[in-house]
C-alpha cells in the first residue's frame, strides 16, 4: 500500500453528513484535522453530501452514526457511487462509526430488514435483544500499539467478525460488538461503535490513522486535556483504580 512520506496536505473526506452525523461524530474529523495541523500538515476537508459523487483521492474517509432509514439510504448511495472501494485500492484509510461501521461490512439490519453493506470489512451485523448504551472500555489489539480504548456506545446492533478482519479491542466494560470484542479493523479500514467522539477520547488512535497516511511516526503533541479526559472516563468505569480524592469526586456526580 502506498504512503505519502512527503505529505504536505492531508485530504480528509467526511461522508454524508446529511445522513450520518448524529452523536457528535463530526468530532472525529475535527480531531484528525487538529492533530495533523499540530504536526505542520495542511488539511483539506471535503464534506460530501449524499447527492454528490465522492472524490477517490482522499487520504482518510470518515463516516458516522445515524438512524436506520438514513443508514440504509447511505449504504445504497455508497454502493451506487462505487468510489469508496476504489479509494481503498489506492490506499485510503477509512474510519467508520456505528451505523457507518455496520455499512462497511457485508450486511446489516435496518428497520427490520437485512441490507447489503459495502463488504470492505469482513463483518456482518444483526439486531441485539437490547440496546447497548453507556461507557465502554477495552484493550486495543496489541499489534496497533494504542492504549486503552474509551468511548460511549449507543446502538442496538451486534456485529460478528469474519476471518479476514480482527477486533479493534477486547471489551473490559460495556458491550461493543457482542459483549466480548469491540470494533474491527483490516488493513487500513477501521470501524467502531464508539462515540464520544471516538478519536477525541482516543487521540493516539487518531495518530495511528494519520501515521498510516504519512508512513512515519508522528511527533507527540501536548495531550494534557485528552489525557485528563481519558483518566477521568476510565476511572468512572473502573472505580477501583481511583485514588482516594477521585473517589469523593465520583460521589458528587
Amino acid at each position: 500500500m502506498s504512503t505519502r512520506p512527503s505529505l504536505s496536505t492531508l485530504r480528509l473526506v467526511w461522508l454524508y453528513p446529511d445522513l450520518l452525523s448524529t452523536y457528535g461524530d463530526r468530532g472525529n474529523l475535527q480531531v484528525l484535522a487538529y492533530r495533523a495541523i499540530g504536526r505542520g500538515i495542511d488539511v483539506d476537508i471535503v464534506e460530501v453530501t449524499s447527492d454528490k459523487h465522492m472524490p477517490t483521492e482522499g487520504d482518510i474517509y470518515l463516516i458516522g452514526g445515524g438512524e436506520d432509514g438514513p443508514q440504509a439510504l447511505a449504504a445504497d448511495r455508497l454502493r451506487a457511487d462505487g468510489s469508496l472501494p476504489r479509494a481503498v485500492n489506492k490506499g485510503a484509510v477509512i474510519f467508520s462509526v456505528c451505523a457507518g461501521y455496520q455499512i462497511m461490512g457485508t450486511s446489516f439490519m435496518a428497520k427490520g430488514e437485512q441490507h447489503a453493506g459495502l463488504g470492505l470489512l469482513d463483518i456482518h451485523s444483526q439486531r441485539g435483544d437490547k440496546r447497548a448504551v453507556g461507557e465502554l472500555a477495552g484493550q486495543i489489539d496489541p499489534r496497533l500499539h494504542v492504549p486503552t480504548l474509551t468511548g460511549f456506545e449507543n446502538h442496538g446492533g451486534r456485529t460478528f467478525i469474519g476471518p479476514n478482519a480482527a477486533p479493534l479491542a477486547k471489551v473490559t466494560h460495556g458491550i461493543g460488538n457482542d459483549g466480548t470484542t469491540e470494533g474491527a479493523w483490516a488493513g487500513r479500514i477501521m470501524g467502531t461503535y464508539l462515540h464520544g467522539p471516538a478519536l477525541a477520547r482516543n487521540p493516539l488512535l487518531a495518530d495511528l490513522l494519520l501515521s498510516w497516511v504519512t508512513g512515519s511516526q508522528l511527533v507527540p503533541l501536548d495531550d494534557t486535556w485528552p489525557t485528563a479526559l481519558r483518566n477521568e472516563r476510565l476511572a468512572a468505569v473502573n472505580p477501583k483504580q481511583l485514588p482516594p480524592d477521585a473517589n469523593n469526586a465520583m460521589e458528587l456526580m
Binding site: S21, Y23, G24, D25, R26, G27, Q30, V133, G134, E135, F152, N154, H195, G196, P197, A200, L252, M253
Partner: peptide
C-alpha cells in the same frame, strides 16, 4: 450521559473573549 453532542456545536462565537470551563 453522552457528551458527544458538544462536537455538533461550533464554539467559534466565543473566540476573542476570556473562556472559563467548569462542570463535572
Amino acid at each position: 450521559y453522552d457528551t458527544s453532542w458538544i462536537y455538533d456545536v461550533d464554539y467559534s462565537p466565543v473566540l476573542g473573549r476570556q473562556v472559563l470551563v467548569t462542570g463535572d
